[in-house]
Design a binder for these strands. Sequence first.
RNA 1: GAGUGCGUAGCUCAGCUGGUAGAGCACCUGACUUUUAAUCAGGUGGCCCUGGGUUCGAAUCCCAGCGCGCUCACCA
Length: 492
Amino acid sequence: MTDSQNLGHEQRQVRLAKLKKLEEMGINAYPQIYRPTETSASLATKYETLANDTVTEDVVKVAGRIRAIRNSGMFIDIYDSTGKVQIYTSKNDSSEELLQMLDLLDIGDIIGVEGIVKRTKRGELSVSSMKITMLAKALLPLPEKFHGLTDTDTKYRQRYLDMITNPETTETLIKRSKIITAIRTLLLDQGLLEVETPLLHVIKGGATAKPFITHHNALDMDLFLRVAPELYLKRLIVGGMEGVFEIGRNFRNEGIDTRHNPEFTMMEIYRQYNDYTDMMTLVEQIFETAALKVNGTTDVEIDGKKISLKGPFQRRTMASLIEEYAGVDFLSIQSDEEARAVCDKLGVPVADDADWGHCMAAVFEEKCEQHLIQPTHVIDHPKSISPLTKEHRDDPRLVERFETFVNTWEMCNAYSELTNPIDQRERFEEQVKARDAGDDEADMMDEDFVTALEHGMAPTGGLGVGIDRLIMILTSNLSIRDIIAFPTMRKK
RNA sequence: GAGUGCGUAGCUCAGCUGGUAGAGCACCUGACUUUUAAUCAGGUGGCCCUGGGUUCGAAUCCCAGCGCGCUCACCA
C-alpha cells in the first residue's frame, strides 16, 4: 500500500531512523525466531504469591508488543496473547548495550526480554531486563490506547489495529472460534461426518437467493458461487452416508446491513431416518452446547433483552402465530384470491399473482417475526415457498419445515427433506416458471439432483444454521461486521 | 437501491450566525530512578474527504461525487 508510506509521515521517519541505527549496530530488527519461556499468564500463575518489593533469581524470556513506555523507559508494558508483562529497567545498573536498545524502542514494537522475575514496590509482577531483543520494529504508530480505535471504517479495514487496541474485539473473535469448535465437536460426537462440497456450482440451487457469477477460463463456462450446499449434501445421503454436515461459506449477492454479509458462514446437517422434529431437538442441543461452552450459561442478553437458550424451545405453527398476531385463520382460506384480499385488508403488500402460500408467508413476516424474541420453532410452512421440503403428513398445502427464531432473527431453517423425485421435479418446474417470470432468486432445474433422487433417498432430516447470527446472539453483538474478522467493504 | 447522519493532526475529538486551525494522547527536546492513561516544561506535526459554486474572504453556506454508520428495501 502506498497509503501506509504516507501515514504518520513524521513519526514513520523517526522510526525508520531508529531502524537504520539498529542495522548499523548489526541488529536484525526482524529476526527469524525467538522462543519465550514464559507468558504473562504463566508468570502470573507461577509467581502469584511473590511478595511486593521482592526479586527472585529466576531468569525468564518473555515477548510481546510494547503498549506503554513510562519514566523514560524504566517501565515498559508489553502484551502477549495472554496479557501484560511489565518490563523494568534501571538505568543505574544496566549495560551500555541495553540502554542503547532502550533508546530505540517505540510503542508498537514487538520485543523479547530476558531478565529476572521480580515484583515491584507497587505490586506489579515484572521482568527486570538483562537483554532486550528487537523482534519486529514497528514503523507506524498505533491508535491512541485510552479511547482505542473507534472509527468503524478503520476497524473493519485494518482489523489488526482494532484487535490490538480493543481487547473485546479479540475476545469476540476467539469466542467465534470456540463456538464453531463446540458445535463441530457435538456433531462429531453424534456420529455425523464432516464433509466438503463444491463452492463453485454449475447450477444455482438450494436457496432462494441471488448468486454471484464467476467464470472459468479453461472451460469457458460461467459458474455460481454457492448460495447453499444443500443439493450436494443430499447427494451424499443418497450415496449412503448416514449423516453429514458442512460448515462453510455461502455467497449471496444481496444487500449488506447489520445482519447480512455477502459471504457468511452456514452450517448444514443431514441425517437419515430423521424428520423435522428430530432436527428441532438437534437445534436445541446445538444452541445449548455452544452457549454453555463459551458463556457457561444458556442465558444471554442482547439489545437489553434477556433470552434463555435452554431447550426445549416453544413450537408454534405458522398458522397459529398468524392467528395470534394478525387475527386471521389462514388455514380456512381456500383460494389465492381470498388470500390476497386478506393481505390487502391487513396492509401486507403482496404481488398481484401471489398464491396462498406466499400470502401466508408475507403475513407471517410482517406481523409475527417481530414478536419472536425467545427461541421459537416456527413450524409447518406453506408448500409453495418450500421447494425442497416434504409435504406435511396432515395437510397437503403445508410442508414439514421449521425456522427457529431468536431475537426476531431467523436462525435456522430445517425440513423433512423432499425425497420424492416426481414431486421434486414438479417443484423445480414451478421454480423455473417463477424464474422465467422474472424471479432471479428462484431455483434452476437441477436434473442431476432429480436423477439422484430417482435412485432413492432414505427419509432424511435436514437443518441449516446461520452460524454468524448464532455468534451474534452468544456474543451480544448487534452487527454482523463485529463478529466477522474481515467483513466485505467497498473498494476505497 | 432509497432516506439520513458523519468525514478536521498518526489516534480520540473541539472549532458558534463565514474572518485564514485547536486540545488530549502519540512524536521530538529536556527534567524526574519515580510507574500503571506516570508526571512536569518546551516543541514539531494539517490537501480541514474530493471537485465545483456563492463570497472581498469557506473547515464553516450551496451543489455533485467518494467512503463509513444508521434506518428502510432485498434477504439469512
